[in-house]
Computed example of a mutant assay.
Amino acid sequence: MLVELDEHGMISHARVRHARSPQIERGKRAGATTGIVVHQTDADTSASSLNSYKRPKANGAHFLIDKDGTIYQTAAIYQRTNHVGPLQARCLAIQKCKPRDFPAKVSAAEMHRIEMLKAPADRYPSNMEAIGIELVGRAKLPPGFKALGEEATWSLDKIRGKYGIFETPTAAQNQSLSWLVNALQGSMQIAADEVFRHPVVSRKNLTEAQGANWTLSTPKP
Rank of each mutant, 00 (worst) to 15 (best):
R17G: 05
G149V: 04
S202E: 01
I77S: 09
I94F: 04
V84W: 06
R15M: 12
Q23G: 00
T74Q: 07
P125Q: 08
Q40T: 00
K54F: 00
I131V: 15
D66C: 03
L87I: 07
N182K: 11
E134G: 10
P56R: 00
H62M: 02
W179E: 07
S46P: 03
F196W: 08
G27T: 00
K140C: 08
S126I: 04
A32M: 12
F63N: 05
A108V: 07
T70I: 07
Q23D: 05
T218V: 15
V38P: 06
L135S: 08
W154Q: 04
A47L: 11
M111I: 12
K146E: 15
K54G: 02
P143D: 08
D42E: 04
A19G: 10
I36R: 12
V16C: 03
G27D: 03
R138D: 08
D42P: 00
A19N: 12
L148T: 15
R90N: 09
K57D: 11
V181F: 08
S12R: 15
V106I: 13
A183Y: 05
E129M: 10
A19D: 14
S178E: 12
K146N: 09
Q210D: 12
M10D: 14
V136N: 07
R26Y: 07
I11V: 14
N127W: 08
K54M: 06
A172N: 13
R138K: 15
T74P: 02
Y163N: 09
L5D: 08
T168E: 11
E134Y: 14
P103M: 06
R17K: 15
C97A: 14
L117C: 12
R138C: 09
G9Q: 06
I11T: 07
T70D: 02
F166E: 03
D68A: 06
R20M: 13
R55F: 04
R160I: 05
A119H: 14
L141K: 06
G161Y: 02
E7S: 13
R55H: 07
F102V: 05
P103I: 04
G132Y: 08
T218P: 00
A209V: 01
P143N: 02
G69S: 03
Q79M: 13
I71L: 03
R138S: 14
A61F: 03
I159C: 03
N51C: 02
L180Q: 11
L5Q: 10
Y78W: 15
R80G: 04
L148E: 15
A183H: 06
F166A: 04
V195M: 02
P143I: 02
I94E: 15
E151D: 14
P221I: 02
V38H: 08
A14W: 12
R90V: 04
G9V: 05
H83S: 11
A109G: 13
R203A: 11
L5C: 10
P99W: 07
A119D: 14
Q210E: 13
A119S: 14
K162E: 11
V84D: 01
V16E: 01
A104T: 12
V195C: 03
I11R: 08
G132C: 05
A19K: 13
M10P: 00
A108T: 11
A191C: 01
A139S: 10
K67G: 01
R160N: 03
R29D: 06
